[in-house]
Amino acid sequence: MRQMISRLEKTTALDAVSDRLQSAVQAVARPKRLRDLLHGTWLGHPLHPVLVQVPVGAFMSAAVLDALPGQRKAATTLIAVGTAAAAPAIAAGWVDWSSLSRDQRRIGLIHATANAVALGLYAGSLVARSSGRWGRGRLLAYAGLSVAGGGAYLGGHLSYEQGAGMNVAAPEKLRLPADWAEVGEVASLPEGRPTVRTIDGVRVLLYRVGDDVTAMVEQCGHQGGPLGEGEIEGSGADACVVCPWHGSTFRLTDGVVQHGPAAGDQPTLRTRIRDGVLSIATP
């Protein structure tokens, strides 16, 4: 299984389809509010894995009820609920997928294909049940659950092995000192404009407004883009930095995410100023 997935990650033949689909998804989800909604920026957590719980729970419960006598109607109702609930989960998944790297999109494409097949099998199960062919309906439902399980395996690989949807800046924060590390004179930092310093091999983005300095991990939590090279929107306490790779936007004074595809806030650090000297430490 691992060898097969490794080959899929390197299958460049998928890129032509992947690139066209990416362009189509980005065109449909062009409004920023729609993208933020589906990415889960408002939630502080990716929305897709939250939405997936409804169809998965419904399909798993239906499988149990299908194995029990006298539960045909309840199982059919759950399958109908799961099939309908798959729509928002699919929408959120495609929007997340469209902002991934090319090797991640290859696995994501197969993941989506498996889920589409599973959903088709469940739809067929509903049709069979509605016409009184309960045996065929149960068979199609169990086949759908099996295919969905394979799709879930690929989804887990995409998240935990390839890092899709994870805050890749969090491990960088762990590399920074827990005790105070001196950065330098506050007066040397530009006013109202971010600057980058390297501490213990980790790039830190510093932002000074008057005597207040905010420090955050410079590597974007979405896909690792260099925030220090991003454009600045707004000024003063409302200033935000825009990741040059995928457009994730974070408020410089506290790292709070304003726009996706990042769903979580950018990791920030403690700051201390003594005798005009700035020091930072992990929270």
Rank of each mutant, 00 (worst) to 15 (best):
S98I: 07
T12L: 04
T113G: 15
H48P: 02
H45C: 01
P177G: 09
V209L: 15
Q53M: 07
G144C: 06
P49H: 10
T83Q: 00
A178Y: 06
D212I: 01
P261M: 05
R136G: 13
A143C: 10
G201Q: 07
D275P: 02
V56K: 06
L158F: 09
L37T: 15
T282H: 00
F59V: 10
L78N: 05
A262G: 11
P46C: 07
L139G: 05
R30T: 14
L8V: 13
H39K: 01
S61R: 03
T11K: 01
C243Q: 08
G276F: 11
T76L: 04
V81H: 05
S23K: 14
T214G: 00
G221A: 08
S146C: 07
V202P: 01
W180D: 10
V28E: 01
V186T: 13
A178Q: 14
S131H: 13
A67H: 08
P190A: 13
G155F: 08
V183P: 00
Q258G: 08
V54C: 06
I199V: 15
V186I: 14
E218T: 03
A114T: 13
V217S: 10
G221Y: 05
A92K: 06
E231Y: 00
R106D: 02
A141T: 12
G201R: 11
P88H: 09
M4W: 14
L121S: 09
V56P: 00
G57M: 05
R203N: 15
L14S: 02
V183E: 04
V202T: 15
G137A: 09
H157P: 00
A263R: 02
L189V: 05
V209S: 14
L47H: 04
G234N: 08
G165V: 02
R105Q: 15
T83M: 03
G149K: 01
A178I: 12
L37W: 13
N115D: 03
P46K: 02
L119M: 11
D200T: 12
G93L: 12
H111N: 08
A170L: 14
T41K: 06
A24E: 04
R136S: 12
R270M: 13
L51M: 14
G228V: 09
L176W: 02
V127N: 01
P244K: 05
A86C: 07
G255I: 09
A89T: 06
L47T: 09
P194E: 10
M60H: 01
D254C: 04
L145N: 12
A148E: 06
V257H: 04
I280L: 11
G165L: 07
L140Q: 08
I280D: 04
W245E: 05
A164F: 09
G156N: 12
T253A: 15
R197D: 03
S248F: 04
G151V: 04
G120D: 06
V54E: 02
Q22Y: 01
Q258V: 14
L205V: 05
R105V: 10
V50C: 05
V186Q: 06
R274E: 15
L174Y: 01
A24S: 06
A239Y: 09
I107C: 03
G132A: 12
W180T: 08
W134Y: 11
T76C: 02
G135F: 02
A29Y: 07
